[in-house]
């Protein structure tokens, strides 16, 4: 499937078609609007990081809350504490007839593979991973594209020609963020120097703001004046350290511009909230589809945040350059290398 099911954030020429289709559908259905909506019993199984992690899981929760406010449909959720509970929770929700069930995070793939096969009549959505079954919707993101754009902005905003990256746990996914970022920085300043640090090699690295702050400080000491983090809760420390030193941070996943207003250059957005919301919404509207949704810049699945908190930091040239890069990536004129395609980052 090449079309992702994210109708409300679609842009460009296709939008007219979609709007038209929606309008037509609206007319056709307005008479029977009450019956057109399928009863759904949505449920979420979070990652082991937990519901309120201020980034990834919380994004899903926010999307589900939005759905609940709009439709009044309640959802169930569960926070597993170990790997066995993931499968247990998925099966438990499935047995109770919940659908769609969102499995948050790549670590649930193996469990979902089993459970989704056992309950072919139910709908499942997995985020950040592909599970190839006829009743599973897999939502993955092109984090390298979004990281490229914030890298470009970082390269333009940097006065020293030196920028930093602080990753969370050293896994391929985070190297993918780093690799996209480096490419973006180099696109803005060919000879820019990029300092990369990973916080750690255990899951504790996702929630170590003190160490994140120390890493950011050491990069600042070496001359970095813009620092991007892809480190979950650790990043709170990165952003604070950058702000304290009068430098700029870059947020990740959710819009973190407001965490240190005026000191966060931008945030790389990964719209897991939209993915969750759309899955529930589509199921309710009866147009839920299985298959793979790869959400990149084109689909607005990733992007960069511009709001009141950072508009003073983004000059018109920077915005123009980012918009152009975005258009070039969408058109294919600029290719951003995906680290995970070959486990290499040749920049």
């Amino acid at each position: 499937m090449e079309r992702p099911t994210l109708p409300d954030i679609d842009r460009g020429p296709r939008m007219h078609l979609k709007t038209l289709a929606l309008a037509l559908a609206g007319v056709a259905l307005s008479a029977v609007v009450a019956m057109a909506q399928t009863a759904v019993k949505p449920a979420i199984v979070y990652d082991k990081g937990g519901k309120f992690d201020k980034s990834f899981n919380e994004g899903v929760f926010a999307g589900a809350e939005k759905f609940k406010t709009e439709t009044g449909v309640e959802f169930r959720d569960f926070e597993p504490t170990n790997d066995a509970q993931i499968e247990q929770a998925l099966r438990r929700f499935a047995r109770d007839g919940h659908s769609p069930i969102i499995a948050v995070g790549f670590s649930q793939a193996t469990a979902l593979q089993k459970v989704a096969a056992e309950f072919p009549a139910l709908k499942f959505t997995i985020i950040d991973m592909v599970v190839d079954l006829p009743n599973v919707q897999s939502v993955v993101f092109k984090e390298h594209e979004g990281s490229y754009l914030v890298g470009l902005l970082a390269g333009m905003a940097s006065k020293t020609g030196k920028v930093g990256f602080v990753g969370g746990m050293d896994i391929p996914l985070i190297r993918k963020f780093a690799c996209g970022y480096v490419q973006g920085v180099k696109a803005a300043k060919k000879d820019a120097e990029i300092f990369q640090n990973m916080t750690g090699s255990t899951p504790a690295a996702w929630n170590d703001p003190v160490k994140g702050g120390e890493l950011a400080k050491s990069q600042i000491d070496r001359g970095a004046d813009v620092i991007y983090h892809a480190a979950g809760g650790t990043g709170i420390g990165v952003l604070r350290a950058a702000a304290d030193a009068g430098k700029l941070g870059i947020g990740v996943d959710s819009n973190q511009n407001g965490l240190q207003p005026g000191k966060v250059l931008t945030s790389m957005l990964k719209r897991v909230d939209v993915a969750a919301y759309s899955s529930f919404k589509a199921a309710r509207d009866g147009n839920w589809k299985a298959g793979i949704s790869v959400l990149g810049l084109k689909e607005d699945g990733v992007g960069w945040a511009l709001d009141d908190a950072n508009k003073a930091l983004i000059t018109p040239e920077m915005k123009a350059a980012a918009d152009k890069a975005r258009a070039d990536i969408i058109s294919g004129a600029v290719k951003v290398h995906d680290y995970m395609s070959d486990s290499k980052c040749a920049v």
Binding site: F106, S107, A109, D128, M129, M169, D170, I171, P172, L173, S201, T202, M340, S341, S343
Partner: peptide, 20 residues
């Protein structure tokens, strides 16, 4: 824990997998 991460990411990990 560190050794496991190294092995799973660099040596015996499933190629192309998001999860180590």
């Amino acid at each position: 824990a560190t050794l496991t991460v190294y092995l799973l990411v660099e040596v015996i990990g499933k190629p192309g997998s998001m999860q180590p």
